[in-house]
Simulated scan of single mutants.
Amino acid sequence: MTAAEDNRYQNGYYEESSSELAVPQAFDRSDAGDSDEATEQNTAGTTFGLSALALSVLSLFIMPILFGAAGIVLGFVARRRGANTLGAWAIGVGAVSIIIGIFILPFF
């Protein structure tokens, strides 16, 4: 042991100075190279969401059971692919259309 090491042990502590000299690194993993895949999935989700919403709105006027069910299914697919708002609206409008088609429309 050298005299400096012996002095550190006698003082009761041993401090490592290399951690103080290192520059802290910030890691941002949000843009970690998969941006093209994420953009492609988001575009596919938006396409499914718009298709689902179009089917659900169309089901308010023509064949509510068939188009409403298709809009609900596509709405769930759109939500799974990242288009949460469009998918939720398609599910809601499709469900309202089916309810109107089953319970209210037969009375008219």
Rank of each mutant, 00 (worst) to 15 (best):
T2A: 08
A3R: 15
A3D: 15
A4V: 02
A4C: 02
D6S: 14
D6A: 14
N7P: 01
R8T: 08
Y9L: 10
Y9I: 15
Y9V: 11
Q10C: 07
Q10F: 08
N11H: 08
Y13D: 09
Y13G: 03
E15T: 10
S17Y: 07
S17N: 07
S19A: 11
L21D: 14
A22L: 13
V23T: 13
P24M: 08
P24W: 15
Q25F: 13
Q25C: 06
A26V: 11
A26S: 13
A26M: 14
A26T: 10
A26L: 14
R29W: 13
R29H: 06
R29V: 05
S30T: 14
A32Q: 13
G33H: 07
D36K: 09
E37S: 08
A38D: 13
A38S: 06
T39S: 15
T39A: 15
T39F: 12
E40D: 12
E40I: 07
Q41Y: 01
N42S: 14
N42L: 15
N42A: 15
N42I: 11
T43H: 11
A44Y: 04
G45M: 02
G45L: 02
F48L: 13
F48K: 11
G49K: 06
G49S: 10
L50W: 02
L50T: 01
S51P: 04
S51H: 13
A52S: 14
A52Q: 03
A54H: 10
L55F: 09
L55M: 13
L55C: 07
V57A: 05
S59D: 03
S59P: 03
S59N: 02
L60I: 00
I62K: 05
P64K: 02
I65N: 01
I65A: 07
L66F: 10
F67M: 03
F67Q: 01
F67D: 03
A69W: 02
A69E: 00
G71L: 00
I72A: 06
V73R: 10
V73E: 05
L74W: 07
L74M: 14
L74K: 06
G75K: 01
A78P: 05
R79F: 05
R79S: 12
R80Q: 09
R81P: 04
G82D: 08
A83G: 07
A83K: 05
N84H: 10
G87N: 07
G87W: 03
W89Q: 03
A90Q: 00
A90S: 04
I91K: 01
G92R: 00
G92I: 01
G92M: 02
G92C: 04
V93Q: 10
G94L: 01
A95D: 05
A95S: 12
V96N: 04
V96R: 02
V96G: 04
V96D: 00
V96C: 03
I99M: 04
I100V: 06
I100F: 12
F103Q: 05
F103L: 13
I104Q: 10
L105S: 08
L105P: 02
L105I: 06
L105T: 12
F107T: 02
